[in-house]
Structures are given as C-alpha cells and as structure tokens.
Amino acid sequence: MTALLEVARLSARYGRGAPVLHEVALELGQGEFVTVIGANTAGKSTLLRAISGVGPAVEGSIRFDGRELTAVAPHARPKLGIAHVPEGRHVFPEMSVEENLAIGAHARGGAPGGGAAARLEAIFELFPRLRERRRQFGGTLSGGEQQMLAIGRGLMLEPRLLILDEPSLGLAPMIVEELHDRLVEIHRRGVAILLVEQNVSLALSVASRGYVLQSGSIVLEGPAGELLRDDRVREAYLGI
C-alpha cells in the first residue's frame, strides 16, 4: 500500500518557544482510518494544522500523494484533496447551512454544475438534519449540528483525506455516538480519515491504527486494537 500521507521529521514551534512538535513521523495509507491520541497540549492540533497549512512554521516534510506539501499554500491544499475540519467547528455563523456548504465547492473554482449538486445531496443523505436546517444560519445550529455542518463543508471539497480535530468536543454522548457512526460511513465510502480525539476509547474503536502523541513526540503506535489493550494507554488515557 502506497502512503497517502507521509509525515517525516516534522518539528514545529510557535515563535521562539519550545518546540510543540519534535521530529514527528506518521503515515497514512490510501483510504485508511488513523487516529492520533494524546493529552491536551501534546501537539495534536498543531500536527493537523501543519498538514492543512494554517499552523506555525514547520521543519521537516509532509508529503501528500508523493507531493511535498510544505511549499503549497494553505488555500491550495483543499484542491489537492485535503479537507480540515478544525477544532471548535468554525462554521460561518451568518451564512445559511447551504451557503456554508457551497463555499467549499465554490472556492474550488469548479463550475456550479451537477457534480457539486450531487455532493450536496450525498451530504444531506449523510446528515439529514442539515437538510432540515438548510436555510438556517450556521450560528443558530446546536453544537452537534454545527459539527455535522463543518464535516459536510469539508466533504464538499471531495477530499481524499479528511482531517478532524476533536469532533466530539463538548457534545452530548448520544450525539458523539452518532457522529462516529457517520465517520465510519464516510470512511466506508473511500475517504481516508485522520482523527484527533480526546475520547480515546471511541477513537480507537473506529480507527484501524493509532499514534500516541506525548509532549510533541510520537511515543507509541500500532493497530487500534493493540493500543486499546496496551497497559500504558489504558492507564494514561482510559483511566483503567
């Protein structure tokens, strides 16, 4: 399996501070579902932000589909097939649900033709709540609906890799379950997923492989099932 995403010797720091990421190496195959777990401030968000280009300056290499990403402008990365669903959702509050979704297709420069309409339909099928609320402003949705909207907005880019930063943060347990079902469904449709999640047991139950990030370094990696049984993971992140 050739890697879709290859991160090698990636280091990042904000200003002159201590490095937030230190020589991180990570790989993700075509259509694979990988999770990165770790405590707060371990550098998980910074890692994702480095991949989508909105983070701090980095050293090292990020290759997507064999192409070096560090020289590609952030707004050009979605065109290559990377969709980042940022932490805290960041929907456009004063745009309707439809407008929020359309901006992705729009920014891509594609003619507003059948392809985009079909994608919109597929997203409404995946998240029926969004269809119900299509004319409502993004800012008036509930937290769970906003998360669905943020994911839908990413899917409008027709990504090959969907990057999700803490999608379950602040959501009710039932909504979290539903969300993870949706992620499995998205993955089943052939989209590779890189998931950062504080809800470690849930993340490891949906992903096939996992990495443990601690103070900016990868300290452990392996199949999700093995990590779930690993004593260190259980003790540090599952509280068992």
């Binding site: 952030p74 969709a83 980042h84 901006i103 992705g104 920014a107 891509r108 880019l157």
Partner: peptide, 15 residues
C-alpha cells in the same frame, strides 16, 4: 467567508 472566519475560509480553499 473571510469576514466571518478567515481561517475556516482558508481551509475550505478560499484564497
């Protein structure tokens, strides 16, 4: 999009 959330605009491909 820029006005409402510049960073979100960037990650959905707005230059």
């Amino acid at each position: 999009a820029v006005k409402e959330n510049e960073q979100a605009a960037e990650v959905v491909g707005v230059n």
